[in-house]
Design a protein around this nucleic acid. Sequence first.
DNA 1: GATCATTGCATGATATTTCATGCTTCCAGT
DNA 2: ACTGGAAGCATGAAATATCATGCAATGATC
Lengths: 159, 159
Amino acid sequence: MDHPDQTDALEEAAIERPFLSNYLLFLLASTSASASEEFHATVRANGLRVPEWRVLACLHEEDGQMVTRLAPLALAEQSRLTRIIMQMDARGLVERRSDPEDRRRVRIYLTDEGRALAEDMIARARDHEAELLSVLPAGKGEELRKLLKEVHAKLTARD
Amino acid sequence: MDHPDQTDALEEAAIERPFLSNYLLFLLASTSASASEEFHATVRANGLRVPEWRVLACLHEEDGQMVTRLAPLALAEQSRLTRIIMQMDARGLVERRSDPEDRRRVRIYLTDEGRALAEDMIARARDHEAELLSVLPAGKGEELRKLLKEVHAKLTARD
DNA sequence: GATCATTGCATGATATTTCATGCTTCCAGT
DNA sequence: ACTGGAAGCATGAAATATCATGCAATGATC
């Protein structure tokens, strides 16, 4: 029996179920980018780069973390984070201390100035998050948060 | 009447409701990163950088897009995308044609080689997505996809 | 306790990104 | 048509990121 031309079949398939707008990795990256855009502008307006803000937030949550622990949390590669932390140190936001238990380790601590900035920025982040949620249909934001926590936990558990 | 020391109050608050692990922008960025990690390795194994793969996917969906339309879709800044496309052109994956309707515009088209690679990578992306979904609790992935589509639509509508 | 592998971080060289700005082409108002 | 402004893309110079590798400290094995 005859069958349709293969190229046409492929194109039809592409039209019938658009790939990109349903592709989970695209939706995640794109939603993350558009949700973060505004706040990242605030971050830069406060003289911080995005990974620097992330480091402040991580340290505020748990002070004295190692560089290699901070790197994945701040979504930055190790050598990059090392340099970012050197700059934050030079600027007086954090302090590096070698760990007496294991002298290969460098533990990062917030300075008073760093802690103040972290608290300030976290307050802004909370405000921005509230605004963001208010744009969404009621409940959708919380639903999304809950789902992301579950999915994120599953994904990071595979290590 | 007396009140507790302010620093203690702040610290308690931080302990009681951890900020980061509930912060929507963190959950989005971090989930996106960990979900994409594996597939991005595949992308690089196929000789593509992540934005190049995104360009291929966008063009496969709609060929002949402008640079300024492609840039936000590929999550890359315009001048960066210009250079990425120049490289893809040099490699024979895409072709740049000036738009006769408006000669400021440069429209990007897949070459046959580019289209073949795009189709190949999209197939891999579909497979990877299926694997990813199979790791998650049943239904969670589809739930997430649906929510992200709604939220992403709301967020990008504000322009 | 010597050796070998590994972990944790730093760093040099290279490649990439970014920012501001330049150059065209188009459009609106006159 | 002419002028001012904006859109679309390109590009140089400076800042950053990346990759591989180096070095030091630790742990494991014999």
